[in-house]
Amino acid sequence: MKVIFLKDVKGKGKKGEIKNVADGYANNFLFKQGLAIEATPANLKALE
């Protein structure tokens, strides 16, 4: 799953980066902790 990092995550990505991560990692950790959002077309456009 492609995500946009909202904060730096050690060993995974930095704020503003768009990366592929495992679905479970994104859903169970990144999204719940507010560290990333899904890289949907709307979210990508808002990032610009």
Rank of each mutant, 00 (worst) to 15 (best):
A36V: 07
K15L: 07
G34F: 09
V9Y: 04
G34N: 09
A36E: 01
A46W: 15
K12W: 15
K12L: 15
Q33V: 10
V3Q: 01
K19P: 01
I37P: 00
A36L: 01
Y25A: 04
Q33G: 08
L6P: 01
K19D: 04
K32Q: 11
G13W: 12
K45W: 09
A26R: 04
N28G: 13
V9F: 04
M1F: 07
A36M: 03
A46Y: 12
F5W: 02
V9A: 03
G34H: 10
D8W: 12
I37H: 04
E17Y: 02
I4G: 01
V21P: 00
E17M: 07
I18S: 02
N27W: 15
E38C: 06
F31R: 00
K14S: 11
Y25F: 12
V21G: 02
L44Y: 04
K45Y: 11
L35D: 04
N43R: 05
I37N: 02
K32V: 14
K12I: 15
F5N: 01
N27I: 15
A46K: 12
N27A: 13
A39Y: 12
K19R: 11
K15C: 12
N20G: 08
K7T: 12
M1K: 10
A26K: 04
K12C: 14
N27D: 08
N28M: 10
K19T: 08
A39L: 07
F29M: 07
A46G: 09
L35I: 07
A39C: 08
A46E: 12
K7M: 12
Q33W: 15
A39F: 10
I18P: 01
G24K: 12
G13H: 13
M1A: 04
G13S: 04
L6F: 03
L35Y: 13
K45F: 08
L6Q: 03
E38I: 11
G13P: 01
N43Q: 07
E38H: 08
E17C: 04
V21L: 05
I18W: 02
N27V: 15
A22F: 10
I18F: 03
G16K: 01
L30C: 03
E48W: 09
D8G: 06
V9G: 00
V21C: 10
G13T: 02
I4V: 11
M1H: 03
G16Q: 02
D23P: 15
L30Q: 01
L6I: 11
D23I: 15
L44G: 03
K2T: 14
L44D: 04
N28P: 03
L30I: 02
D8R: 06
A26M: 05
K10D: 12
M1G: 03
E48L: 14
I37F: 05
K12E: 14
G11M: 05
G34L: 07
N28H: 12
M1T: 13
K14V: 08
L35R: 00
I37D: 01
F5Y: 07
Y25M: 07
T40F: 03
N20C: 14
V9P: 01
G11E: 05
G16V: 01
N20V: 15
A26F: 14
F31A: 03
A22Q: 13
K10A: 14
D8E: 09
N27T: 14
P41M: 10
E38Y: 05
D23N: 14
E17D: 11
G13D: 03
V9M: 06
L35M: 09
K32H: 09
T40C: 06
K19Y: 08
A26G: 06
G11W: 08
Q33H: 15
G34S: 06
N27E: 14
K14N: 10
I18N: 02
T40M: 02
K12R: 13
V21W: 02
L30S: 00
A46V: 10
K7I: 10
A36T: 00
K10V: 13
A22S: 14
K10G: 08
L35E: 03
M1V: 14
P41S: 11
K2S: 12
K15V: 09
T40W: 01
L47T: 08
A42L: 09
K12Y: 14
P41F: 10
P41E: 14
P41K: 11
E38W: 06
A36Y: 02
K32W: 07
N43K: 05
A39I: 03
E48C: 09
F5C: 06
A26N: 06
K19N: 05
K19Q: 10
K32I: 14
V21S: 02
N43Y: 07
L6S: 01
D23F: 15
L47P: 06
K14C: 12
K45S: 12
F31S: 00
A39V: 06
E38S: 08
P41A: 13
M1D: 03
I4Y: 08
A26V: 05
N43T: 09
A42E: 14
Y25V: 09
P41T: 10
N20S: 13
L47H: 11
V21Y: 06
K2Y: 14
T40R: 01
N27Y: 14
L47K: 05
Y25I: 07
D8Y: 08
N27M: 13
D23M: 15
K45E: 12
Q33R: 14
M1S: 06
I4N: 02
A39G: 05
K2G: 05
D23Y: 14
